[in-house]
Design a protein around this nucleic acid. Sequence first.
DNA 1: TTAAACTTTCAAAAATAAATGAAAGTTTAT
DNA 2: ATAAACTTTCATTTATTTTTGAAAGTTTAA
Lengths: 167, 167
Amino acid sequence: MEFKEAKNKFVQTWGALGSQWGINKTMAQIHALLMVSNEPVSMEDVMEELQISRGNASMNLRALMDWGIVYKEYKAGERREFFTAEKDLDELAVKIARERSKREIKPALKILKEVSSINSKDSAEEKHFVEQTTKLYDFVLKADNMLDKMTEINENWLGRLVLKIMK
Amino acid sequence: MEFKEAKNKFVQTWGALGSQWGINKTMAQIHALLMVSNEPVSMEDVMEELQISRGNASMNLRALMDWGIVYKEYKAGERREFFTAEKDLDELAVKIARERSKREIKPALKILKEVSSINSKDSAEEKHFVEQTTKLYDFVLKADNMLDKMTEINENWLGRLVLKIMK
DNA sequence: TTAAACTTTCAAAAATAAATGAAAGTTTAT
DNA sequence: ATAAACTTTCATTTATTTTTGAAAGTTTAA
């Protein structure tokens, strides 16, 4: 395979993966592009390489910065702005996990708590509902905490051990 | 809050969460409905409760069964089929993780391996590409393995300890 | 074997999400 | 202060995904 082909294939693949995991396709593609770029990339370059409009590029670069996984960079003597991606993958994972937790899981937890707190009265149906949603609340909370703490695993000794055992 | 309202809220919330995590909205809603149902639910009931068409109900129930998280059930003396959801949440998580790994991560890994194996020749650009995609491959592989093994944590002694520490 | 009771399929329609591009907004050098 | 160089916004268009519903397919009881 040739470099250009490989690069293109990578960008497409990362884009598809992203869109399956709740990040939109173009956003993931831009991120992919920046990830494998040697040096900062201008918005013009992004538009050119991905064949997308200025507005699209602008909005998705902004979104990536909101997620904290892409940074603006200024080159001395250059008017326009350049962009680079967070390249430390552990850091990347933490930031994505945090953002999704904040945007999606936390609000869902709030509602799970609400609905699991109804006065279950008498019927077996209602009792079952409360029981089931309570379990779900606990489970999602646990999963969310694991997500939060996941990367700490990489940073401490016990974690490394666990990783080894889990392998 | 009243039971009916709570139930509805729960179904909506679970649906939204599902659609953000790669499972379509109706599929997640049906799953939610079955999760909190005391007893097996017929397709007719699903259509009625979620106000969806027969075709939609049929296709999504089928998809849920393909994922292995909803089961058909037959009632003695009844012609039509009833459905129940996997209610053990650990089991549910494993099945979802396995399915997504199979459908999304494994294919992506294959391509990551491919593109990271190009002959990096000379340019710094190409070298960086190979380096970066190789790291990504390793990382995604590691994450995928963790997903695979995640639930084992709940099943063994060391795991429980780790969970406690991570809390 | 037939017909009633039910489920599945799939082309077309509807709903939703994403992209465009021109106009408005900023910033910076002079 | 001005204009050039650049970025952002957002109403409209385009693309994608989901839903519908009627027809085709299945299964079962008699």
